[in-house]
Simulated scan of single mutants.
Amino acid sequence: SLALAGPQTSGTAFSGTNSLTAQDAYGNVVTGFDASTNNVTVSSSLTGSITGLSGTNKLNSASDFVSGVANLTSLGLKYTGESGSGTFTFTPATGAPVSSSSLTINSGTATKLIITGTGTQTAGTSQTITITAKDA
């Protein structure tokens, strides 16, 4: 089963209670689950990258799951990319994938300002410009 707290912020490690529990077909916790022999790939319906785990976008270490539960917060799950509402899917190499319900990702901290104007400007005359703050 999968529990992801929301909202989260793009470019920042997930906060709150975020966990993935390995279960068998009957819903029993698989306490001996080992991600080093059954890698779990993480993907999102949003366009971006997933980092902070033992693999770039994977749980692939024997220590990722303790008694069948991966604490995604302490492991450092981080999504960096487009903001909005999307889902996250965890797919083991062997077994059934599990997807989150819709999760809101907010934009990250502004790191640059984009200034746009209207064509060629003449000194001493008024002009219209737009300044947009953008995250990474």
Rank of each mutant, 00 (worst) to 15 (best):
L2I: 05
S67K: 02
T31S: 11
V40H: 05
D24F: 14
G81L: 08
V30A: 07
V69H: 00
S43V: 09
S43Q: 02
T37Q: 14
Q8L: 06
Q8M: 06
S43K: 09
S36C: 12
G68F: 03
L4R: 01
L53K: 05
S74E: 08
G81I: 06
N38S: 12
N18Q: 13
V29M: 01
S63M: 09
A3Y: 00
N60I: 04
V40L: 10
F65Y: 12
S85N: 12
A62Y: 10
S43A: 13
T47P: 11
T73W: 00
V69G: 02
Q23N: 11
T37L: 15
K58L: 07
L46H: 03
T31N: 04
L46S: 08
D64K: 02
S44P: 06
I50T: 05
Q23K: 12
V30H: 09
Y79V: 09
A3H: 08
T87C: 08
L20K: 00
L46I: 06
A22P: 05
G32H: 11
Q23Y: 05
A62T: 13
G68N: 09
L75K: 02
N28Q: 11
S54L: 04
S67I: 01
S63A: 15
S54V: 00
L46G: 08
G27D: 11
T80V: 10
G84W: 05
G27T: 14
T12W: 00
G6Q: 14
G86H: 03
S10W: 09
A22C: 13
A22K: 01
F14Q: 03
L2K: 00
F65W: 11
G48E: 04
Y79R: 07
G52N: 02
T87K: 15
N71V: 00
T31E: 03
F88N: 00
A5I: 03
V69A: 00
F33G: 03
F65H: 01
K78P: 00
T31R: 13
Y79C: 07
F33L: 05
T17V: 14
T12E: 11
S67D: 09
L2D: 00
F33D: 02
F88P: 01
A13Q: 10
G27I: 14
L72K: 01
S15Y: 11
V29I: 15
